[in-house]
Write a protein that binds this DNA or RNA. Structure first.
Length: 583
DNA sequence: GCCGTTTTCGGCCCGACTGTTTTCAGTCG
């Protein structure tokens, strides 16, 4: 999969073109191409040379040729030419907050600054402040920016961002008596798997209150630094050690109630989704901004998001779908899929007890599952090869199955399936013999070791497991840990085709560090008719409550409840499992 | 460079904040 690499080339070309001052519409096009490539579930290097590549939205003849060229030669001439026009480390300067292409071009041309060390020297010897358009304050801000860059952390996991946002909102509610409404926005609301900064939106109908909210925000506990603060908007760097050790940028915007919907829509993004909406507005001779949808001076919509979409002639688009991945077109035709919701989930088919590496008893898990309103759960302790996870040998497993069946008899309002998360061994065989697997109500096959092998080997391994008639589902298919462990190299086309052929479900593991399958693969899988299961893989009762992250990932992949096995009644799952029939 | 139920040529989203400015450019989201 070379999409990351190819997309990065287009972004780098755009960066260089900005510095040397080329047409910015062309630059935007390159950035869009980069985004389309990054979002594409198919390996674009496999689409190269075929018409399919040119049919991707935003990719025209010229971009397709560059992609073909990369696949054939490993380089793109246009890219190489651009690289020759700038010093090799110049692009590092763009990473400094507050320093953009115009500034970089100025210091390079006028002061021969070619990298961050050069810039630091220009700040130190005060030659920077002599430059037209620069000054002492700008120099100071850049010095600060360089320091920040040296200590900068990357994006944080969604669940930490949720924790931090809740901490900030909690403090604001406590400190501001007149605070009526405050909402989460940005990538946090869209439930991207990682979050760069946290966006909040507050409502205030008088300017006094708006100022008070902004000012209070800059003074709450945990603020490390105020980046900017105006009348209606402020940005801070914030940390809360109760959530995580990272320092995160939090942006707050305050708008009047007549604009709350438009502002919430705007600050939820994505940027590209918003651009699409504004283009539609322009075509209708309207104007869309964070204050509302306007015809001339007249506000047509703004109080609610629903109004804004409606007046634009669009069906309401759920936040998790707002990525400009085709949802706007479907909303225009009123053909959006009704994506799965938390309330559709009827059970959780992946969790662990102390029999292997879980922390809560069977009874405690059942109690929590009942509280969550589930009709069924599957107990899926590890198999014998997972020694670190205290996996069960056959003898222990058989006893465990008995215990679960006895327990199941005690409940008439929930069904407990005796199951197992069985290791897929290196050669693709299963960690228990078939006659043992046959005794389980449900079987998840998972890869837990040897994830670093070559693609053909990993793919063949998983597909062999799928071909075992007792395996119902592949758990966390790629094995990735976001930000920590790379996904296993899988030919996702082949895995999806095998899932259809062998009638095996794929898991959407809801754990915030996994989210595996991820959104674009979810979409690819359901397009080909694969059934998915959203599971928490809980190791304690708190883990059972992380289902929402899996649901959000399913929504981001446009899955409806009919795509998700554990949105169906247990009888339907049993029939699906045994007969291989349709749901 | 891409795209088209107003266009195959002429468009391509919008506003807050900051700093260096006598009216605005750059950056960010």
């Amino acid at each position: 999969m070379r999409n990351q690499q190819i997309g990065d080339i287009f972004n780098e070309m755009a960066d260089i073109m900005e510095i040397i001052g080329e047409d910015h519409f062309r630059i935007n096009t390159y950035r869009k191409v980069a985004r389309v490539i990054h979002d594409c579930p198919q390996d674009v290097s496999e689409l190269a040379g075929r018409e399919e590549l040119r049919s991707l939205p935003g990719i025209g003849e010229s971009s397709a040729k560059k992609i073909d060229e990369f696949v054939q030669h490993g380089t793109v001439q246009a890219h190489e030419k651009l690289l020759k026009k700038i010093p090799p480390k110049l692009l590092d300067l763009l990473k400094i907050p507050g320093f953009g292409p115009k500034g970089v071009a100025a210091v390079w041309k006028k002061l021969n600054v070619e990298n961050i060390a050069d810039l630091q020297r220009a700040i130190d010897d005060q030659s920077l402040e002599e430059l037209p358009g620069f000054g002492a304050k700008k120099a100071e801000a850049l010095a600060h920016g360089i320091k920040f860059l040296e200590s900068a952390q990357g994006r944080i996991l969604l669940i930490y961002a949720v924790g931090i946002a809740e901490a900030v909102v909690g403090q604001l509610r406590q400190r501001i008596a007149g605070l009526k409404r405050i909402e989460l926005a940005g990538s946090l609301r869209r439930c991207r798997e990682t979050i760069g900064d946290i966006d909040l939106l507050a409502e205030a109908d008088d300017e006094e209150l708006a100022r008070h909210i902004v000012e209070t925000f800059t003074r709450i506990d945990g603020v490390q630094e105020v980046i900017l603060a105006g009348e209606t908007k402020a940005s801070v760097r914030f940390t809360d050690p109760n959530v995580c050790s990272d320092v995160v940028q939090v942006d707050l915007r305050v708008v009047p109630s007549k604009s709350t919907g438009a502002a919430w829509q705007y600050f939820t993004g994505s940027k590209y989704h918003n651009v699409r909406l504004r283009e539609i507005a322009v075509k209708k001779k309207f104007k869309l901004n964070e204050y509302g949808l306007f015809r001339g001076e007249k506000q047509l919509a703004g109080k609610t998001e629903q109004d804004v979409y409606k007046k634009l002639g669009l069906a309401y688009i759920p936040p998790t779908m707002r990525e400009d991945r085709g949802e706007v077109e479907l909303a225009q035709k009123n053909k959006l899929p009704a994506v799965v919701e938390q309330k559709d989930i009827r059970g959780d088919l992946h969790m662990h007890t102390p029999a292997s590496d879980g922390r809560n008893t069977l009874e405690e898990l059942v109690a929590m599952a009942k509280m969550l309103g589930y009709q069924y759960i599957a107990i899926t302790d590890h198999s014998q090869s997972s020694a670190i996870a205290n996996g069960l040998d056959i003898e222990r497993l058989l006893k465990h199955i008995k215990k679960i069946k006895v327990l199941n008899e005690q409940y008439d309002d929930i069904t407990i399936l005796a199951s197992s998360e069985v290791d897929i061994l290196m050669d693709g065989s299963m960690d228990y013999p078939d006659e043992v697997l046959a005794q389980l109500d449900f079987v998840i096959g998972s890869v837990h070791s040897g994830l670093t092998g070559p693609e053909e080997k990993c793919t063949a391994r998983v597909i062999r497991a799928m071909k075992n008639p007792y395996v119902n589902c592949i758990g966390h298919p790629t094995g990735r840990l976001i930000g920590t462990r790379e996904p296993m190299k899988l030919d996702m086309n082949a895995v999806i085709a095998a899932a259809v052929e062998t009638h095996t479900a794929l898991e959407i593991n809801a754990h915030p560090q996994r989210l595996d399958l991820k959104d674009i693969h979810v979409r690819q899988a359901i397009e080909d008719g694969v059934k998915l299961i959203i599971n928490t893989d809980a190791h304690d009762v708190a883990g059972l409550q992380l289902m929402r992250y899996g649901v959000a990932t399913a929504q981001r992949g446009w899955a409806t409840s009919s795509d998700i096995l554990n949105c169906q009644p247990l009888d339907a799952i049993r029939a699906w499992r045994v007969e291989g029939g349709e749901l």
